[in-house]
């Protein structure tokens, strides 16, 4: 185990460069994670010095894409935390069902596994046809994967178990067809889904929703940025709408706390009327 190639003061310089040249602002990300990601990238890509990494990023736009892709975390799975999807299915869905049209925003959707998980729940509860689902991420390349809906067949055992533990009642394999070592999810699931880039740091609210899901994204932001993004969500939620976060994320200590009521033990809050 080696000491970090990129020190924290150098990382700050690099982040300001990237923000100025490309408009990707990572300066308010949580430094401990970011430092680890950047140094991991240097190991993988065999950079020898800070100067070398900086030169490459500032002079090679394709490499910038790789940089963004690698320092943002894209680890996800279908029906991640099954109890969360059980609460969505049993508690949130009946509330959403009362609306003639449903608008949902899945922010930081990464490679799409959670988008399709939600679509399956909406499909099984008969709401998919009247739902518009916005799936956004900062990173265009993961959105391409999300749009395809093609995943490794080896993950299906876990996903199928998660699905059953979340209250799924069908044979999970009816949702995909296998092609060699991959599976393709049925197109019906993405019928009313819009995949689009959205940068939570820089972009504004673009609609009003009855449910916003943003899981394991805020953990990579510092407190100030978390507060800004929570305010963006608050501005994008109708009264009585729901906000769902990752299992260790909270709106405690934020301005939203007094305006929202937590639903049971899951990290789901309802905006007060």
């Amino acid at each position: 185990m080696k000491a970090d190639l990129i020190k924290e003061d150098e990382l700050h310089i690099l982040l300001i460069d990237v923000a100025q040249k490309y408009g990707y602002d990572f300066t308010e990300y949580s430094m401990a994670s970011l430092k680890r990601r950047v140094n991991r990238l240097c190991l993988i890509d065999k950079h020898k010095s800070f100067a070398e990494l900086r030169y490459r990023i500032l002079n090679d736009e394709e490499y910038l894409s790789r940089f963004v892709e690698e320092i943002t975390v894209n680890v996800t799975e279908m029906f991640r935390d099954p109890s969360f999807y059980k609460t969505i299915r049993e508690t949130i869905i009946p509330e959403l069902a009362t609306h003639p049209h449903i608008k949902i925003w899945l922010a930081g959707c990464s490679t799409g596994e959670e988008v399709y998980s939600l679509s399956i729940v909406l499909h099984e509860t008969g709401l998919l046809h009247k739902t518009l689902l916005y799936a956004t991420d900062i990173n265009p390349s993961v959105l391409e994967v999300a749009k395809q809906g093609i995943y490794a067949i080896g993950d299906m055992k876990l996903y199928s178990e998660n699905y059953i533990n979340s209250g799924g009642i069908k044979d999970f394999s009816t949702y995909y067809s296998a092609i060699y070592d991959h599976i393709k999810l049925i197109d019906e699931l993405k019928l009313n889904t819009v995949f689009a880039t959205h940068n939570l740091v820089a972009d504004r609210s673009f609609n009003e929703f009855q449910l916003i899901i943003c899981r394991n994204v805020l953990i990579y932001f510092n407190k100030d940025l978390q507060e800004k993004v929570l305010t963006l969500f608050d501005d994008s939620l109708e009264n009585s709408a729901f906000l769902a976060l990752g299992s260790k994320e909270t709106i405690r200590f934020s301005d939203l706390e007094s305006k929202y009521t937590q639903i049971g033990r899951e990290k789901i809050w309802r905006k007060n009327c």
Binding site: S30, A32, S33, R36, V73, V75
Partner: peptide
């Protein structure tokens, strides 16, 4: 992970 201000950052990478 722990930040310079001794706050905890979680990471699901």
């Amino acid at each position: 992970l722990v930040e310079n201000d001794h706050s905890v950052s979680l990471d699901s990478s």
